[in-house]
């Protein structure tokens, strides 16, 4: 029994390994991009629109509203990263309803990659907003002594992000696998439904935490700017 889709290897050559995680991710990427292209190629600006356009608009505007509610005033700037994070995790977790499907989010490598992306995105948006040195100074706030704690905080929350998502999805998959061997009828279906709910909740938690981290970095610099403005 495989704990992770990483363990299903299709092709390997030294360091390079093409496993189920990567292949599934490509398929999901293709599905998302082609689906988006198909729907957005027929976009209308009239009062009556297609159902697919309406669904996509609802999803996109809801993500935008969520980002805004967390505290980022210009959500269009962050929706590319946060929205994709949510949609990728949500779509990955959604297909667990298919038999023999193993979500890439059940791989610690994928969740670690996503957590690293968030870990990199936080300073990226912070620096973009305030500048390099101004952002670095936030690590020694309120005093210099806080520097190691701030760094530990950054690393630990990244680790927590990766482990939380991986743990939830992997455990869901494991439970279903175990239940299939014990009682193959009906009970796994209920567990799949529960797994679907868990997957959606995890997608939401992952991206809302990412938004909070980014917002914290951006707002810190915004606060500073306002204070500087007052001194002038």
């Amino acid at each position: 029994m495989n704990l992770s889709p990483d363990q299903t290897v299709f092709w390997s050559n030294g360091f390079i390994t093409i496993n189920l995680t990567i292949v599934t991710t490509w398929v999901i990427m293709l599905f998302m991009v082609i689906g988006a292209m198909l729907i957005t190629s027929k976009l209308k600006t009239t009062k009556t629109i297609s159902r697919w356009q309406a669904i996509l608009e609802i999803i996109v505007t809801t993500i935008n509203e969520q980002i805004k509610e967390v505290g980022l005033d210009n959500p269009n700037k962050y929706i590319g990263f946060i929205g994709t994070l949510f949609l990728f995790i949500a779509v990955s977790n959604f297909w667990i309803i298919l038999p023999w499907y193993e979500p890439p989010t059940g791989s610690l490598s994928t969740t670690a990659a996503l957590a690293i992306a968030v870990f990199l995105a936080v300073p990226f948006f912070g620096i973009q907003q305030t500048g390099f040195f101004a952002y670095l100074k936030t690590y020694i706030k309120p005093t210099f002594i806080m520097l190691p704690f701030n760094i530990i905080s950054e690393l630990s929350r990244t680790l927590a992000l990766a482990i939380r998502l991986f743990g939830n999805i992997m455990s869901g998959g494991m439970i279903i696998a175990i239940l299939l061997s014990i009682s193959p009828l009906f009970i796994p279906i209920v567990m799949k439904a529960l797994g679907l709910l868990t997957g959606m909740v995890q997608a939401y938690i992952f991206c809302i935490l990412a938004t909070v981290y980014i917002a914290a970095a951006v707002q810190e610099s915004v606060k500073k700017k306002k204070v500087v403005g007052c001194k002038c």
Partner: peptide, 10 residues
């Protein structure tokens, strides 16, 4: 490798 590949994919 999967981490790097998934990061690039993402």
């Amino acid at each position: 490798f999967t981490v790097i590949a998934q990061l690039i994919n993402f």
